[in-house]
Write a protein that binds this DNA or RNA. Structure first.
Lengths: 172, 172
DNA sequence: CTACCATGGTTCAATGAACGAACTGAGGGG
DNA sequence: CCCCTCAGTTCGTTCATTGAACCATGGTAG
């Protein structure tokens, strides 16, 4: 779908949020960044998204302060996109939505499961650790493949996520 | 914006969720339904959305089981759109996103504040009551206007929300 | 020095979605 | 009989997404 960008008439924080992360593909780009995807080519291969759209979305997210674009080598010059602290805080909405989708729209059980690094227990839709009972920030989380995962894709990101992986740590 | 509808290549619960609530306007329709908006004309006036788009979004949400369309009077025949239990569970993602928008994108402070009906304390981005420490479902919540609210709009919904209002209860 | 490759884009024509104004249709009410 | 309301549908224009092709930078191999 195409989403227009603005909801000018809405005096509402949700509308402001949607102007940043409500465009098509944007929240999936953020999800990938949370997994640790950082390079243009990896986003591209994992998302199956037109290059022009990815380019535009990354620019929007950088401008909104969700991603930071930074040089990680000079020769040849290469930039990577990394989540800022503002981006980290999208963790809560993202888990909440993913859990809703898992509960009501996915026939097959969870595709990926989030675990608390320090205790290993599962994290629920409010980003709380079931065992510890505390709010868990994204830095303390590990993704593991779940029973509903089909594992059809063979891009580097999908391959890396077939084994447990610490959130935010670089892929591949 | 326009969002295409599918993310076929993504084997991910978040992608499934976005196929339902990720289209332009859809999440704002859900938010309005949470406020208690039920009639076509009220959504229309409050959202400033093209009629054809609203019509299509309502149909999608009904089909996905988020809204229920039901006759509430026979003469003249009139239908209303009401959130289902599946729709109620979008409460958590919606507060989480709204709170993120409020924290990082709204200059002026919260536009609307959610309070726990039984104790009156504020509800945070994980839908927990600050005082009671429990998870609060949408049925037990009241919206109140916040300091950042501009109050420019004069449609029936905006007017009704200028005073505290219990979530899900019919507007106006 | 030249050819080729990888990465990270931009450009462009075609398709599809959103927009907004006009129209339809069912059903009162005066 | 005329007019009004509510809930849509239809339609031409504008705008976003798509996907293929192209470009630019900087290695690297011969």
């Amino acid at each position: 779908m195409a989403l227009g960008k603005n909801y000018d008439a809405q005096d509402c924080s949700l509308a402001r949020a949607l102007e940043v992360i409500g465009e098509r593909w944007t929240l999936l780009v953020v999800r990938d960044a949370m997994y640790g995807v950082r390079r243009f080519g990896d986003f591209l291969a994992h998302l199956d998204i037109p290059r022009a759209v990815l380019s535009q979305r990354l620019a929007t997210l950088v401008e909104a302060g969700v991603l930071d674009k930074r040089r990680y080598q000079d020769s040849p010059p290469r930039d990577e996109y990394v989540l800022t602290p503002v981006g980290h805080e999208l963790w809560l909405p993202v888990v909440a939505l993913a859990q809703w989708g898992e509960r009501h729209l996915s026939g097959t059980g969870p595709r990926r499961v989030f675990h608390h690094l320090t205790c290993g227990s599962r994290i629920d839709g409010t980003a709380r650790c079931a065992a510890c009972g505390v709010q868990v920030s994204i830095e303390e989380v590990e993704v593991r493949p779940g029973p509903g995962l089909k594992g059809i894709r063979n891009d580097p990101v999908s391959v890396a996520l077939r084994t447990p992986h610490r959130m935010l740590h670089p892929i591949p």
